[in-house]
């Protein structure tokens, strides 16, 4: 097991009261497995992964629970130790490639910086490796690209550079936070293709965050759907897409307009909008928007259960 998260809770103190961004999230990730995490804004998908990376620097945040990487507990690890893992064994790809690179340094320098931070190699050795990496992520002219500044590259190329950087120390775990959301579909297709190939080659486990069900279904081995800081459904890709159980998953899949076949006159829409984390209902957070909610949903939050394909819903549990 590469990553094992148990009952993770992250909360922030704010002026308007405490915000529980993550409320008891658990998941496992095996070697060279791709886990897709789906959710909307405020679902906690990004915060949970920042917690894994030890990148929640906000002094108002409290992190509880357990995050084990290859059996080693990361929660409460001294910053120094965490830093040794970050970028080295656990790497991250961010959403917006336009702002993720420091604008004043060349691409090659920025990637080499990471290699040199973790491996005691000479500058020229590091640069050789950078050229290899850029070739691997399909830069047409890797040597020339090394001396380019971020603003001289297109969005897709920048994201490739960020991916090359993430791969530079052969991480066992790669965390990607909506890496294709800011890109055009044509560019996205190339990046998804690249992630698949690299996973096969480097055997890295990948956690891929997205709001796009289509992306998840193309890439992930297993899927986890989040809503308002909790996991509402998990399962393998096939289980989740051929037999979605949680009303939220079903509704979300149903509201996506089809790309082929007959167009429905109206889309089956979900009423309302995602709840504010400051004012979560006592019971199931999806309850107020749920087509099948009944009394038990008001009183308490349904648990996820322990099955491989599980949904946090009283209706599902009852059936």
């Amino acid at each position: 097991m590469i990553l094992s998260v148990r009952d993770l809770r992250v909360s922030f103190r704010t002026h308007d009261g405490p915000v529980r961004a993550i409320d008891g999230v658990s998941f496992d990730l095996g070697e060279s497995e791709i886990l897709g995490v789906v959710g909307e804004s405020g679902s906690g998908k990004t915060v949970s992964l920042l917690a894994v990376m030890g990148l929640i620097t906000d002094p108002n945040a409290t992190i509880e629970g357990s995050i084990r990487y290859k059996g080693r507990e990361l929660v409460g690890l001294p910053p120094r130790e965490l830093r040794r893992l970050r970028g080295n064994e656990i790497a991250m790809i961010f959403q917006d490639p336009m702002t993720a690179l420091t604008p004043v340094y060349m691409i090659g320098w920025q990637i080499a910086e990471q290699i040199r931070a973790h491996r005691g190699v000479s500058k020229s050795k590091a640069m050789e490796r950078v050229e290899q990496l850029l070739a691997e992520v399909n830069f047409p002219n890797p040597h020339e690209a090394m001396s380019r500044y971020p603003h001289q590259l297109s969005g897709g190329m920048r994201q490739r550079a960020v991916i090359a950087m993430a791969l530079s120390c052969d991480p066992a775990l790669l965390v990607a936070d909506e890496p294709t959301t800011a890109l055009d579909v044509t560019v996205q297709a190339g990046i998804l293709d690249l992630v698949r190939k690299l996973r096969a080659k480097h055997k890295s486990a990948v956690v891929f965050i997205t709001h796009d069900m289509g992306v998840v279904s193309e890439l992930a081995d297993r899927v986890m759907v989040m809503y308002a800081g909790r996991v509402v459904e998990r399962g393998t890709r096939t289980e989740l897409f051929s037999d979605p159980r949680h009303p939220y998953t079903r509704a979300l899949l149903g509201s996506i307009p089809p790309l082929t076949g007959q167009k429905p006159r109206r889309l089956p829409a979900i009423p309302g909008s995602p709840p504010s984390l400051l004012r979560l209902p006592q019971g199931c957070a999806f309850g107020p928007r749920c087509p099948v909610h009944y009394e038990p949903c008001e009183a308490s939050k349904p648990g996820l259960g322990s099955g491989a394909h599980a949904a946090a819903c009283f209706r599902v549990a009852q059936a």
Partner: peptide, 25 residues
């Protein structure tokens, strides 16, 4: 190429839809 690049929810294993990946920017 544009339409083939759209990721769609598929329950069957990936790779059934033919995808044209454009090179260059």
């Amino acid at each position: 190429a544009l339409i083939s690049a759209v990721p769609v929810v598929e329950t069957t294993p990936s790779g059934t839809r033919k995808r044209i990946i454009l090179t260059g920017d």
